[in-house]
Design a protein around this nucleic acid. Sequence first.
DNA 1: TCCGCACGGG
Length: 533
Amino acid sequence: MVKMNPQPCVREFNKLLSHIVKLKECSTALFLFKDIRFLGIPVSEYTMSIAINSYCISNRVDYGFSLLGWFFKLGYVPTATTFSPLLKGLFRGNRIDEAQELFKKIVSEELCQLNVVVYGTVIDGLCKAGNTARAFELFRVMERGSCMPDTYIYSTLINGLCKDKLIDPAVKLFYEMLEKGVVPDVVTYTSLLHGLCSLSRLQEAKILMKEMLGCKVYPDLITFNIMIDALCKEGLVDDAEDVARIMIQNNLVPDIITYNSLMDGYCLQSRWDDARKIFESMAGKRIVPDIFSYNILINGYCKGMKIDYALHLFHEMPQKGLAPDVTTYNTILQGLFCDCRCYAALELFDEMQVVGQKPNFFTYCNMLDGLCRNGHVQRALLFLDELEKKGLDLHINYFNIAIDGLCKAGKLDNARSLFSSLPSKGLQPDVVTYGAMIKGCCQEGLLEEAKNILMNMKLKSCFPNSLIYNVIVRGFLAKGEFGEAAMFHEEMVDRGLSPDYSTLTLLLDLWRTRENNHTLHNMIQKFAPEITM
DNA sequence: TCCGCACGGG
């Protein structure tokens, strides 16, 4: 184009750049943009907007803003198209406050006419930042103004509500949309379907799917992937395979996500050979297994105690041009610990750092838990000390694991001192911490101490869960203190919690030998009246 | 010729 005579007009250059961006080749687009500038080829505000968008998509929002400065200098008037990529880029970079500031500035200084896309960008950004309530407010502002919400806006909000597990408000909004005459599209339905599936409400998802077909909105690849994944997660991997076949009959081509979901589904059912078959069949479909595929299969093998298969895949990754990521390492670490290969795990932990994979929260949890479970509680405490010395963000979970490990190892004294050191580290015990301590005390028969901890946690507005009540009730039952047991049993029931299987078993065992005991009789009657009748 | 919505792993 540069060498052509006469040179193509700026519109032709813009079209080319725009297509390149749509192909997700932003770096190429930006390279060409720089070339265009260098060669002195004239640009327009469109060219500039395309470049701003490319920078924002490539997570270089600040370059986008410097281009915006240039944009103003050239005397161009920005439009919604200029600002929405910048807003989106700020949200994507987790710069929520700056995004909201920019939006306010656009409104107050009337930098451009707000349109449905700008609103959509901000609403989506707020939803993804976890502020669905604020997104909803903005939606209501729109409704009162002249820029009416369209399908995109409704879909964005419905999706945001679904992600917050607020499926019923999402459905309500869906009907509101229908009443207002805004027509839902495949994305709207897919968002709702995903919301229902994520709450295991598959029957309702099926009904909605029928409604969708009735409205002549047809599921696409993403819709099918969501349904397949949901069936797999419910353990219905054979049904998922059926859905995949229906998908193919409808001329849709399963992609890497489809296959990865199916592999995960098979692994969940311990059908490793079937999972492996999928993995190997991908090559014939010209689909290259990605890091997800490896992590899923490695996880499957680890859970199935086939750690050597997992290690084999792990070592195969670099040969396939894939670098194991922190999830891969975490999965393998867990697998090694499950196989009692602590030494190998410790080595791998060092190795991951050498190759530049930074351990994360899960890595540390895995390490602490793995060491404790293999009888290396002291080593775990040392590990915890090292974390502290490194100045890393300490998380209460790390201490929960250590305290639980100490209790299980019969080192209640050490657990107590670790527990009481928490405030000095700026950490608040949570329900799990208290639970571990209470369980530890009950195991040693120290019921009074357990009671005190229970009282303290309630004073701190940390409410005991059913695990804690069960432990205490069993503790008192085992000691023959039926009155105390009944009191905590009552409290548990009042809080809507129920005794678990092992508590009930213990109750029944005791009652069988002391059939005339009224306290036991009453406790059993609350949950298994048919037994005492 | 430029901008906004849905899917997978520990």
